[in-house]
Simulated assay, not measured.
Amino acid sequence: MHNAPAAPPAAEDHLVLEQLGKSFGTANVIPSLSLAVRKGEMVAFLGPSGCGKTTTLRMIAGLITPSRGRITIGGRDITHVPSHDRDMGLVFQSYALFPHMTVLRNVAFGLEMRKLSRSEVRARALRALEMVQLAHLADRKPRDLSGGQQQRVALARALVIEPSILLLDEPLSNLDAKLRDEMRVQIRALQQASGITAVFVTHDQVEALSMCDRIVVMKDGHIEQFGTPTEIYERPASPFVSGFVGRTNRLSGIADRHGVITIGDQQIRAASAMTGPVEVMMRPHRMRLLAAGADRPSPDDGQNSLRGVLERQTFIGDLVQYHVRVGAAEVVIEEATRRDQGGPAPGTPVDMTWQASDTFVFPASAS
């Protein structure tokens, strides 16, 4: 999805990018990107490596000069304003703490650069550490902290200067799975409590879906979709978004003008006016295997069904995945596990079903 010309900024828009672009030599990394972030919301730039999300964040931060376009904050044009004059708090993937300074001095550093009184610097730095529940570690050095604690120090250092915008670059990628879960909750709670506008870069869909008000899904320097987590997940704008955000099954078919889609020698229905070759996509957890001997549902009841052959069954703790061969394609069905988990044997013909409303249809050329 290429970007339409930017609409006039709305009153509630705080950070506005207007036809922002960046080229490195002959490589046009960001052709033209336009969007508006509202005051007080948290927005994620989500996409695979090389899609342009980090370049965009670094242009917002003033660490990279745009080749074209404009950046405004609260109506003020900051496109060519130096990074240190942009009133932004930055949290890097590497934390970038000063190893020779105490935790308190690390947090106080930005305030000291602003020439505030010693008493005010200390009071504000301690308040910031209290906010991230680390005031009791104020006199320690970064090397004495865990990864999660170091991340919270970096967050406190960014927030203590009371910036207009908080920028986070892959802030949780260096943490283990349990710490990532904890920090997602803490960062979101701090952002909501402070009311600060926050923008962060991630390739992790769980971070984006669980933490953000809206998500920018990027591909090849373009915005594929910009919307709420629910919109992105439930109404993906392209096959790329459907496949990148959440797990999905993908089948090829031929659609007629009545919403009937032929897949091999079988037919399903979808609320689509497309005709000709299409890509059909369904979420694995919205599908289920029919019990042996059960009647296949009727499309007239809003249910789709397909017949295939079970190839294998994979147990992954809270879920069991059934891998079903449908023609040349494989369809995965995910169901909650049970203590007495059984299931058909590999090689068994099986029927699967799902709601017709849970069927995404895209032109085959959109892939």
Rank of each mutant, 00 (worst) to 15 (best):
T228M: 06
P363N: 13
P31W: 08
Q150I: 07
A156C: 09
G147R: 02
M131P: 07
P82G: 08
P299V: 02
V107L: 00
P239D: 14
I215M: 12
N249F: 01
S119L: 06
A356G: 11
I60A: 10
L57Y: 05
Y322N: 04
K53I: 12
T102S: 09
L290S: 07
S119T: 14
P277S: 09
V361I: 14
E18P: 01
L166W: 07
V361T: 14
I232A: 13
V121L: 03
G221S: 13
E18N: 12
A237K: 04
D144W: 00
V107Q: 02
G259E: 03
G75E: 05
T248E: 08
G52M: 10
V132M: 03
G347T: 11
A366L: 12
I263V: 08
E231D: 15
D300I: 04
T202Y: 12
V107P: 04
R127D: 15
I187S: 11
T348F: 13
H2R: 12
V260I: 11
L179G: 11
L33C: 05
Q303C: 00
D265C: 08
L172S: 10
R180W: 09
D139I: 05
H84I: 06
L134C: 02
D213L: 08
V245D: 07
R114F: 01
V324K: 02
G25Q: 11
P363A: 08
G75I: 03
R38W: 06
S164E: 13
T202A: 12
V91Y: 03
G21L: 10
H2V: 14
L15R: 09
C212Q: 05
R307S: 11
E311H: 01
V81D: 02
